[in-house]
Nucleic acid binder design. Sequence first.
DNA 1: GTGCAGTGATTGCTACAGCAAAGATTGCAC
DNA 2: GTGCAATCTTTGCTGTAGCAATCACTGCAC
Lengths: 178, 178
Amino acid sequence: MTDQATQPREASFDALFADGRLTVMGLLAESFHALLAKAGAQLAEHGISVVEFEVLIRLARSPLGLLRMTDLSAQTSVTTSGVTRVVDRLQERGLVCRQACATDRRTTYAVITESGRELMAAALPGHLELVETYLTGPVGEAGDLETFTAMIRRVRDGVAPDAAAGSTGPLPASRSAD
Amino acid sequence: MTDQATQPREASFDALFADGRLTVMGLLAESFHALLAKAGAQLAEHGISVVEFEVLIRLARSPLGLLRMTDLSAQTSVTTSGVTRVVDRLQERGLVCRQACATDRRTTYAVITESGRELMAAALPGHLELVETYLTGPVGEAGDLETFTAMIRRVRDGVAPDAAAGSTGPLPASRSAD
DNA sequence: GTGCAGTGATTGCTACAGCAAAGATTGCAC
DNA sequence: GTGCAATCTTTGCTGTAGCAATCACTGCAC
């Protein structure tokens, strides 16, 4: 019989693990995960989580401060059931409220409240500073930030084309979504 | 009552949301999230999840095909309790096994089995192809892949310096969340 | 040897998110 | 008007991951 433990590792097998693509993917995973952890710790000081921040920022950016639950889901990489529960939590804290749609009784709008806007105004500067410190700053030091943005946008367009399209609905989606 | 919906948005408030840093962070989040979803769907065909893949690949890359639970945790952005359960699942499927350490009875090694290596050999080519299609390919089209790698490595070094260093070594006197 | 601080792995508890199903409503075909 | 497919949201169930506590062991001081 052949020696089981050490034998089966052919050169072609090991070579797979040396692939540069794996390195890039690994670096991206480590970076993003750590970035989220930092952001999460900072946002926790304001009493919200990363996904809650994500929902609030979409609402705050929306012209009328409201979005349909479905659109929130499309814009935030959270499923519709997830949005239901996130909005539940935010509503309990008075950061958003639900509002019925006058023309279609199936749809529910999530609306950011004054309190929600205040929290965003308090949390955003620190968040931007963090992004500057750990993402855009280092990127700029190793190359051109605009180039990086173009690269990552290209990736996004390829892997999540739906996210690039503007949010559907009655609201004027002005520029290409970012 | 005061006009709740439209009044409180000063120019300086809106300006925060137009910040380019938010755009880059958003693009990165969408890209990475979608990338993970694609990878997860593909790996599901092989019966494993993304974190299970992450653990298996670390073990497969390790010279002896084994790592201490703690080291696995350090290398995979999963907490030690998370590693315990992931290894539980993998062990039930015969992809890894636990092995006691001869010199320190506290430590447990996770060891990749022959079956685990076979699964990796089956899953890796498709995974690499996917990374090529959705990450390195598009990046290369929008610029230089080496530049991108340097940028993202710079980010990683800044935000997760521990991951860059070898897994061994005493923890630097650490203040965790800053 | 005994005691004690430090390290490694596991477990109880909890929170969160996805999937699939259900409930409610709409618009369309006839 | 009735029936039916599609749409929007919510809910039940389940799987997973983190935190903090616990158990086991080591190495050191005395």
